[in-house]
């Protein structure tokens, strides 16, 4: 008997695991990925989704099975079995989640590092170091993936000013002011953000990136778009009545298109 139930448990767990993986690979709930760290993000998402599915389906199945199998049948009186605890079981289900959680934590550390989260923020890319006294607050720095795969080694600096209820982009190169963000494919963008009034947040779902724009404390966000297209910029932090309307677009162009745009709009010749 015990052998049989062990085999049964093992097969069920295997089925569960396969089901989890199957679901994670066949149910896609994310928008297109359009930046260099988006695929990295999706990788993490998939792992979390697999673990989540296995856990959720497993727990739900256990509960429903118990409710059906151990239900009180008509005419039955009496109690269930007198089972108060089991040390080895307890150790087992303390250790397994602990290992899973530790694995997830380390894995997401790795992902975060690959996204550039652990890099020092003011990487001296463009040679223009900011004023020493000025504090720049966290965000996502420039990571190894960017520097290794970008054709253009120099990053494109852009300044973002957020206010109720608009995003305003300023290109130091060419002194362009724009309500929309234009960026070329495959080049790292170095976005320096500051808010004029309340907290806003810069979010591009297709880039899988978000950073609060904080009054009084400049923040930095580095990203590299990989797919030409037109994506929404969404303000994600409640900033007043028109918070829902505070949206803009990021237009990712091919390099040539971007250059023409830059040329047409710049106030000074580059």
């Amino acid at each position: 008997m015990p052998k049989l139930s062990a085999i049964l448990t093992l097969t069920l767990s295997l089925i569960l695991g396969v089901a989890g993986v199957w679901i994670a690979y066949n149910v896609n709930m994310l928008p297109v990925s359009a930046s260099i760290n988006a695929p990295v993000y999706d990788e993490l998402y998939r792992v979390l989704f697999i673990i989540g599915c296995i856990l959720f389906i497993g727990m739900t199945a256990l509960v429903i099975y118990s409710l059906i199998q151990f239900r009180r049948r008509p005419g039955e009186t009496g109690d269930g079995i007198d089972l108060e605890g089991n040390i080895s079981l307890e150790i087992f289900w303390t250790a397994v989640p602990a290992i899973v959680v530790l694995f997830v934590g380390l894995y997401s550390y790795d992902i975060y590092d690959r996204m550039g989260g652990m890099q020092p923020l003011m990487h001296d890319h463009s040679g223009q170091m900011d004023n020493q006294a000025e504090r720049v607050w966290g965000g996502i720095g420039s990571g190894p993936i960017e520097s290794s795969s970008t054709k253009n080694s120099s990053s494109l600096p852009i300044e973002l000013t957020a206010m109720q209820f608009a995003f305003i982009f300023h290109y130091p190169k060419g002194d362009i002011i724009s309500g929309e963000l234009h960026v070329p494919v495959g080049r790292e963008v170095n976005l320096k953000m500051e808010s004029k009034d309340v907290i806003h947040a810069f979010w591009v779902p297709q880039f899988r990136l978000k950073q609060d724009v904080i009054p009084g404390q400049p923040t930095i966000l580095n990203f590299t778009p990989t797919k030409a297209g037109n994506y929404p910029i969404v303000c994600a932090e409640l900033c007043g009545p028109y918070h829902g309307g505070m949206r803009s677009n990021v237009i990712v162009d091919e390099q040539e298109d971007f250059d023409t745009w830059l040329k047409e709009n710049s106030k000074e010749s580059i």
Partner: peptide, 13 residues
């Protein structure tokens, strides 16, 4: 532990 509490009981639904 809760699931184990259900396990083997005489559950009133």
């Amino acid at each position: 532990n809760w699931v184990a509490t259900l396990w083997g009981g005489k559950i009133s639904l």
